[in-house]
Design a protein around this nucleic acid. Structure first.
Length: 497
RNA sequence: GCCCCCAUGGUCUAGUGGUUAGGACACAGCCCUUUCAAGGCUAUAACAGGAGUUCGAAUCUCCUUGGGGGCACCA
């Protein structure tokens, strides 16, 4: 199936008004996959024509988020490219030029209605249960008069002259033909009175100029799709392939993600913002794998995909149009799978920051030894600190009660610890495969279970009831610390009586 | 209110006229086991409802219901 597809040019076009979230990331992922698969280009374009909504730092966060996910773009505001600028605010004159062309050719007209009048008209229409729509006051102004008013400095906007009747048909890749009566369409504003183009014009012009072949975006654009098609046609341009992705719903599947919902998520250690995933211990490859499968599938059983797999196997044909509820437990599952798929050396490198974040002083040799023994015990990277922090501590402080083995007294537990201490102290090194057989023999001699004996030692050596495998852990902790920790445990048990 | 879109287990989905409706997550039980996991096995669980078309519908059509999106000088 290695395609003979033509190289695509696709763009991810977020507005810098907030955080990069899962929905955006998934759109960008699909863009990226398609571009890489076909040998085309993935472009980042910042849609910042609304200066009022501009959020400082948002663009940087988007770029950083895409890079963290591994979605390197070929052209964009901070990397340049042949179709720049890639920030729409810097393309104001270009947009105006094309708006003029539409006006000259009769596809658009100047409108001098004030926002105040417009909103009053709208309120009145709503009161009368009519559909809110521009009332057409300026639609039939004589071009010469309109031009005169423009030249006199009167504030104006440019509106698209939508056909009054007929039907506009266009095609969405996932849904087939989308047909709408032109009578239900509005004369949308193309250029605002501040001179900046509105999305509908800016995106259309830029997509054409940047030779975008596939427009992949959220389904919130579906209702304006006919207008976008009409604008393309007014310019005489071919339409790109339209791909409208379904939205993500909240985990319950009932309703879309809300601000409140997002806040609740944080309490459970989840987030919908890409900037948070690293700190929460997620791997970018897991996040990609997870969101790739929300709206796309490969076959009836394959679910684990590396980025390499995704690039090879992604296809637009298997996209689904129905909305998907975000399922964070599935993300946890994928994260576990991807952690286990890592080379231990890679895992060692990736867990390091989580230790350092908590103030641990680590060394790479030890990290390299820890990686393979925690690998199949953690689902998020940050867990490594609570599960395997004891490796980097001089000593641990067990809860005395935890040292008492199930079914035994403190006194008996102390006696077992003493015997283990005696046995272990005879070895010059704590090699796991060397000390395990005699330890098991000890268990047998004592007539106890492995769980009872090893449980005491686990708490003694790690300070925790839950830890990575005991003997491997003891090997890393090392002879001196192991013995010191067991001695301390003996003392604690004896103090209990 | 009007317009557009969507509809298979709790969730993500496979399925494009004939299948015992498949897989995954979650959940429950069992096995394995030095803890926690991981792994293995088993179980529970779905075609929203109603009309049609057809010898035969999860698959095609229509209606209803439910959900989502849009109706700005925001994107």
């Amino acid at each position: 199936m290695m395609s003979e597809q033509k190289p695509v040019r696709v763009r991810f076009a977020p507005s810098p008004t907030g955080h990069l979230h899962l929905g955006g990331a998934r759109t960008a992922l699909y863009d990226f996959l398609l571009a890489r698969q076909t040998g085309g280009q993935f472009i980042l374009r910042i849609e910042d024509t609304d200066r009022k909504r501009y959020v400082a730092g948002a663009e940087e966060e988007i770029c950083a988020g895409l890079r963290w996910l591994g979605l390197e773009y070929d052209e964009g505001p901070d990397v340049g490219g042949p179709c720049g600028p890639y920030r729409q605010s810097e393309r104001k004159e270009i947009h105006q030029e094309y708006a003029q062309r539409l006006v000259k050719e009769g596809h658009a007209y100047y409108c001098f209605c004030s926002p105040e009048r417009l909103s009053k008209v709208r309120e009145e229409q709503q009161r009368q249960k009519l559909n809110p729509r521009y009332d057409g006051t300026c639609r039939n102004l004589a071009p010469s008069e309109a031009l005169r008013r423009v030249n006199e400095g009167e504030p104006y906007t440019v509106r698209f002259r939508t056909p009054k009747d007929g039907v506009t048909r266009t095609t969405d890749l996932l849904r087939g033909e989308i047909a709408v009566d032109n009578s239900s369409l509005d004369d949308i504003i193309l250029v605002k009175s501040d001179g900046y183009a509105v999305y509908h014009l800016a995106a259309t012009v830029d997509d054409h100029l940047m030779q975008i072949t596939h427009v992949i975006r959220g389904s919130e654009w579906l209702s304006t799709l006919p207008v976008h098609a009409l604008i393309h046609r007014a310019f005489g341009w071919d339409e790109p392939v339209w791909v409208h992705l379904s939205v993500f719903l909240k985990p319950s599947g009932k309703g879309k993600m809300s601000k409140r919902e997002a806040a609740d998520l944080a309490k459970d250690g989840y987030s919908i913002f890409i900037k948070d995933f690293e700190a929460l211990g997620y791997l970018p490859e897991a996040v990609n794998n997870w969101i790739a499968l929300m709206g796309w599938s490969y076959d009836d059983r394959t679910e684990f995909f590396s980025m390499y797999d995704l690039i090879e196997k992604f296809n637009l044909e298997k996209l689904t149009p129905s909305p998907a509820a975000i399922n964070f437990t599935k993300l946890d599952h994928f994260n576990g799978l991807h952690i286990r798929a890592l080379q231990p050396g890679d895992l060692a490198r990736r867990i390091k920051p989580y230790y350092q974040r908590e103030g641990y002083v680590t060394d790479d040799d030890t990290l390299l030894k820890i990686a393979p023994i925690v690998q199949e015990h953690i689902v998020t990277l940050d867990e490594v600190v609570e599960k395997a922090g004891f490796f980097f501590k001089d000593s641990v402080v067990p809860v005395a009660e935890d040292l008492v083995a199930k079914g035994l007294t403190a006194r008996q537990s102390a006696e077992i610890a003493r015997k283990a201490y005696h046995l272990l102290s005879q070895f010059s090194e704590m090699k796991a495969d060397v000390i395990e057989p005699p330890m098991r023999k000890l268990v047998e001699e004592l007539g106890l279970t492995a769980g009872q004996v090893f449980g005491i030692l686990r708490v003694a050596v790690t300070g925790q009831k839950v830890s990575p495998p005991l003997f491997e852990s003891m090997e890393i902790v090392g002879r001196e610390r192991v013995l010191a920790r067991i001695q301390r445990a003996i003392n604690l048990l004896e103090a209990m009586g």
